[in-house]
Nucleic acid binder design. Structure first.
Length: 249
DNA sequence: TTCCGGATCG
DNA sequence: CGATCAGGAA
């Protein structure tokens, strides 16, 4: 029934924790269980909210290390002033672009990176995203990682939500939630976290799409960094942190 | 005042 | 690795 595990087709390095077969199965069951609890609680998150792949990719750069609410403010101003085309961003005066995205913090470096990325897109595919995304998934990920302003999380955002390839996205919410639940890879690196999920979940674009969106919803509203709302958490029965919080109160 | 959804450079 | 970037909400 399940598709081939994604790491066999895209993931170059294996997570060595997977060699512990018994705990790996238990961890896989838990990851599935968490997903279904989140889906039952929140419903289909319908992420990513963008009318085009270009808008999605621009939003992915703007949202780096900033709240989505502030990103929406910036996206609105960019849409009004320039529109969501890479050509428009290439031609944009940097100071005007920076002014539009001020709400997303680090706006000067982000404006420069957004423009540099737009030039990179032109050089790679002449703004034809079908051409960019046509290449092999493994190579596409490596390629995106070589683009200016694109780190591992943003690359996976683009792979999953624009190219619609099953690449699991890891962010701070993901790590915080899973750490509190007490599940995760041994090595604390981006690739180890990503492999941890991909080796235990089927390579399903819709599953990865919804899972990450649901994690973000929980992480921003409930499983916050400070003063998390454990009593209202849909995952509290699975979470050691929530239990320690309720016993402490 | 403190905290907070990354990427890059040295 | 640590430093840097530098707004908005609480």
């Amino acid at each position: 029934m399940w598709a081939m595990p994604y790491h066999e087709s895209l993931q170059p390095c294996a997570d060595h924790a997977a060699s512990h077969a018994v705990s790996a199965n238990a961890q896989s069951d838990l990851l599935h269980k968490l997903y279904h609890k989140l889906l039952a609680h929140y419903g289909d998150p319908n992420w990513w909210p963008a009318a085009s792949r270009e808008e999605m990719m621009i939003g992915a750069i703007l949202v780096q290390n900033v709240s989505w609410k502030n990103t929406v403010t910036a996206l609105h101003l960019v849409r009004e002033r320039f529109g969501f085309t890479f050509r428009a961003l290439r031609e944009a005066p940097l100071d005007e672009l920076a002014a539009c995205i001020r709400a997303t913090r680090f706006y000067q470096s982000k404006a420069a990176r957004l423009q540099a990325f737009s030039f990179w897109i032109e050089a790679q595919c002449g703004d034809d995203l079908d051409r960019l995304f046509a290449r092999d998934a493994i190579e596409l990920r490596r390629h995106l990682l070589s683009a200016p302003g694109i780190g591992p999380e943003t690359a996976d955002d683009i792979l999953l939500y624009a190219a619609e390839l099953p690449s699991f996205v890891i962010d701070s919410y993901t790590k915080r939630i899973m750490r509190r639940i007490a599940i995760g890879p041994e090595r604390d690196t981006y690739e180890a976290w990503r492999s941890f999920f991909m080796e235990r979940l089927p390579a399903d674009v819709l599953l990865y799409n919804r899972y990450h969106a649901l994690i973000d919803q929980l992480g921003s509203q409930v499983c916050r960094a400070s003063r998390p709302l454990c009593t209202a958490c849909p995952l509290k029965t699975c979470c050691t942190y929530a239990r320690s919080q309720s016993s402490a109160d």
